[in-house]
């Protein structure tokens, strides 16, 4: 599937701020199932953009606006071809016993332990164990956890914030895609299934009931022994097909956030984000 993505983040400060420093992760990751044909990042006011790869392999663009400014526009355009990551079937057949060895792999360590937004409480662990005890297979376990998160939580925008942890969300069970993802991550990690946070986009041709489509979306990838990373979307209780575009990965939202930054100045700020996806 060939998709065109247009994503703008427009900051308006109520009073001019003296400077700002920003990191954006908007360049889709290079992967076998997705190929970026075109990508362009435009920042206004213009400034020097510097790219680097972070610890998780995401391409980060860093820039600083050093003069007083009242607006900051970050606009990305992208044309990308995606394939169904599950085209060769779902990776069943990895028994749970293989998970013990995952802990020995250094590359999986960050995705097995709690992180700032993925907090594992005893209650949360108990729920995860209930699902775990019914399963034999790693992938089915992940599906079970996803189903649990999806069926016990409600999608309600406006209640949670970017700083809401999995533990906070577990208490109210009302939130948005990133909260669903954080909770599923916490449950996976509670039962020693390596899991990481994914930020990206979801295309929905029919523009219907799919949650998180035509906005920045978030979901989860789990590590299946002998098979690799596989993505699942707990907000929609579905496997990620070719309609998903992976932009960045990390332990939680903080590692993969599309736009982060800080500014010097004593001013309120209005942020407006628009995401538009279309089939090319």
């Amino acid at each position: 599937m060939k998709l065109r993505i247009h994503h703008t983040t427009d900051y308006r400060y109520l009073d001019p701020i003296s400077r700002s420093s920003n990191d954006v992760r908007l360049t889709p990751l290079k992967r076998p199932t997705q190929n970026t044909a075109f990508f362009l990042l435009r920042v206004l006011p213009p400034c020097r953009l510097k790219n680097f790869r972070d610890f998780y392999g995401n391409l980060v663009t860093h820039f600083e606006v050093e003069e007083p400014h009242q607006n900051l526009l970050i606009e990305s355009q992208c044309t990308i071809t995606t394939e169904d990551p599950y085209a060769r079937g779902i990776p069943l057949g990895a028994p749970l016993s293989l998970l013990d060895e995952c802990g020995l792999l250094e590359e999986l360590q960050p995705f097995l332990n709690p992180s700032p937004l993925v907090q594992i409480t005893p209650e949360l662990w108990r729920s995860a164990i209930d699902v775990f005890s019914e399963q034999q297979d790693c992938f089915e376990l992940a599906m079970g956890l996803m189903d649990h998160v999806h069926s016990t939580c409600q999608y309600v925008p406006g209640i949670t914030k970017v700083s809401t942890t999995s533990a906070d969300f577990f208490a109210t069970r009302k939130g948005v895609c990133q909260d669903f993802a954080h909770l599923m991550l916490a449950m996976c990690r509670a039962v020693h299934l390596p899991a990481r946070y994914v930020s990206g986009y979801l295309y929905d041709a029919r523009r219907t009931d799919v949650r998180g489509a035509h906005a920045s979306h978030a979901w989860v990838e789990v590590w299946i022994p002998n098979a690799g990373w596989f993505a699942m979307d707990p907000t929609n209780n579905s496997l990620t097909r070719e309609t998903y575009v992976t932009v960045a990965i990390g332990r939680d939202y903080h590692d993969a956030a599309p736009v982060t930054g800080s500014y010097w100045g004593n001013s309120g700020c209005i942020m407006k984000v628009t995401v538009h996806l279309e089939e090319a």
């Binding site: 362009l40 435009r42 920042v43 206004l44 006011p45 213009p46 400034c47 020097r48 050093e66 003069e67």
Partner: peptide, 17 residues
């Protein structure tokens, strides 16, 4: 063209480049 427009904005403002 995107780069040229950013360049123009820059040379008519801060001239960072």
């Amino acid at each position: 063209i995107t780069a040229l427009n950013l360049f123009l904005y820059d040379v008519y403002h801060e001239q960072k480049i």
